[in-house]
């Protein structure tokens, strides 16, 4: 089982991003995804900066390890500026690109480049999977709401299977909008947002009127209120034909998350190393539920 670091969902300062990835280099990760996936207005790093950072990391790694660097594209394109950002990422000639919408799929397949599909590309069945593989898809990150049984059905029905990646830890991206909720909360227009989502490196928690943690708002994106945590299910994940587990970057304690999963793959599973989170989607329940309690694993 390989471990991947997903793209950062939040808007962090340039120095913090550089520092974060520097720290990540010394962790036992196998893949690192880089790039802005939420909002094309975020300008601490623009497309050329991400490309430069990615290429620099790739060079550094080439000498010391076999860690892979992957570039991720924007999820919701709303303007020509967003599209040109995606074009720049797709036309990098060295690194694998994760397409997060059909614009990137089109650009990459036209250029006859292999590509990965991120969780927001709607691949819900074996036929869609096979079609995109015929166009060059080599890696598939499963949509957030797909459960274990459905994934097995897709993979069982596949003649040829791509590398399968599953979002396994972190706040799940659930929705994208034309509206910026952070700006709205602060009483600002989206056009004059002053990039204030940078003030919330973990996003803004949204609770029900009864105080239940429901969502996290992060610019135009809505994330799950609690982190997904599939560590309990690790043995089952290995049997399901999953190749890569995606861990989603968080502002603090990322090393602990990576360490807990790394121990699990070395046969030293300790679910209590991480907060329980939620696992409903994987168990065919509403996403916000927690089904497997500590030590119980996947229910039959």
């Amino acid at each position: 089982m390989r471990l991947a670091l997903g793209p950062v969902q939040y808007y962090w300062q340039r120095t913090d991003i550089n520092h974060f990835y520097e720290t990540m280099l010394s962790t036992p990760l196998d893949s690192i995804y880089l790039g802005e996936v939420v909002c094309g207005k975020r300008h601490a790093l623009r497309a050329p900066d991400w490309l430069e950072l990615a290429q620099m990391l790739a060079q550094m790694l080439a000498e010391v390890s076999d860690k892979q660097i992957v570039l991720s594209t924007l999820t919701l394109l709303e303007s020509n500026a967003d599209l040109s950002w995606v074009r720049k990422i797709c036309s990098n000639s060295k690194l694998l690109v994760e397409a997060n919408d059909m614009s990137a799929v089109q650009l990459l397949s036209e250029a006859r480049l292999p590509f990965a599909c991120g969780p927001a590309v709607n691949i819900y069945n074996q036929h869609t999977l096979a079609y995109l593989m015929s166009l060059g898809m080599v890696r598939w990150t499963v949509p957030a709401e797909m459960n274990s049984r459905q994934l097995a059905a897709v993979l069982n029905a596949c003649e040829k299977k791509p590398e399968v990646e599953l979002f396994a830890y972190g706040h799940m991206p659930l929705a994208y909008s034309a509206r910026c909720f952070t700006a709205r909360h602060l009483g600002l227009d989206k056009d004059n947002c002053a990039y204030r989502c940078m003030e919330y490196p973990n996003g803004l928690p949204l609770e029900s009127q009864e105080g239940e943690a429901l969502f996290v708002i992060n610019g135009i994106q809505t994330l799950s209120g609690k982190p997904l945590n599939l560590l309990h299910h690790f043995p089952q994940l290995c049997e399901r034909g999953i190749d890569i587990l995606r861990l989603s970057p968080q502002w603090q304690q990322m090393e602990q998350v990576i360490d807990a999963f790394d121990r699990a793959r070395r046969g030293d599973l300790h679910p209590q190393l991480l907060p329980p989170g939620v696992d409903g989607y994987w168990c065919d329940h509403p996403g916000l539920e927690l089904i497997a309690r500590s030590g119980t694993g996947t229910p039959a």
Partner: peptide, 15 residues
Amino acid sequence: IMAEGRCHLSSYVTG
């Protein structure tokens, strides 16, 4: 208000 086809809010709460 969410991009259609890319919203999982309903399944997150109801399945």
